[in-house]
Simulated scan of single mutants.
Amino acid sequence: MKLALLSDIHSNRQALDACLQHARAHGADHFALLGDLVGYGADPAYVVQQAMDLVAAGYTVIGGNHDAFAVQPPAGTDKGAHSMAAQGALWTHEQLSAEQRSFLAHLPLTAQVGGVLLVHASAEAPENWRYVDNEIVAAECLEAATKHPGVKHVFCGHVHQQTLYYRGTGRGLMRFTPTAGVPVPVPPHRQWVGTVGSVGQPRDGDPRAMYALLDTDHWHLRFERVPYAVADAAAAILATRGALPASFAHRLEVGR
């Protein structure tokens, strides 16, 4: 099986379409969306409908923190970043139908596809939305994940970075930064934690969309970077005429 792992789409229609097309062209036969379907971007209803269609077709979708915010928007605060996120969540909530909000509200926080555990944040208390962004947290995530029978691999989103952690000969985890498009062997005799990056809002200075493709027949993992119509996605944000902050558009263009 070739499993396409897509996370943090953030209402970015153009990036999602590009990644799905790329994955299908490279032989993906199962799709998993790892949360944060919405938030920040201008096309939440489109993205949620695509997720609903994937579930109807037998594929896998789990929830993230921005999906929860869209169901029940957080109150704004006096702190700029938090108040902008709250503003975006409220706007997103208003764009979604009652059916789409119900879909988001009932998404599971984890799913298992074969021996692979999928979670938006850490498998250790997924509801706490903890970032898997260092070896210590990755080890705690892996410990929780491997309590599920047969699990040797756990894949997460949330951090908007593409990173792989693995257990070597010692007790701790080793961190590996992959090269896009280069297959990495991930044999199940070791244990692995991967963060698959963000489809709709990369934050590493490269505006191209991110996702990962896992081949479970040969146990190879390929982290992908996909060009898409960034200017169109940014223009759609600006077209909300201030309902979404202009900084959300700028973030797409610079990849930060």
Rank of each mutant, 00 (worst) to 15 (best):
A28D: 11
A28E: 11
H30S: 12
A32R: 00
L34Y: 07
G35Y: 10
G35Q: 03
D36H: 09
D36K: 04
L37Q: 01
G39K: 05
Y40I: 12
G41L: 10
G41W: 04
A42N: 00
Q49I: 00
D53S: 14
V55A: 00
V55E: 11
A56V: 05
A56S: 14
G58P: 01
T60Q: 10
V61D: 11
I62T: 02
G63M: 08
H66I: 07
D67V: 06
D67R: 02
A68K: 13
A70I: 05
A70S: 14
K79D: 14
K79V: 14
G80M: 14
G80H: 13
A81F: 10
S83C: 08
S83V: 06
A89M: 01
W91A: 12
W91M: 11
H93N: 13
Q95P: 10
S97C: 13
A98D: 15
Q100Y: 06
Q100H: 03
R101P: 05
S102T: 13
A105W: 10
A105E: 14
H106Q: 15
L107K: 07
L107Y: 05
L107W: 10
P108S: 03
L109I: 04
L109G: 06
T110K: 09
V113L: 04
V116N: 05
L118F: 10
H120W: 13
S122N: 10
S122R: 03
A123M: 01
A123K: 06
E124N: 13
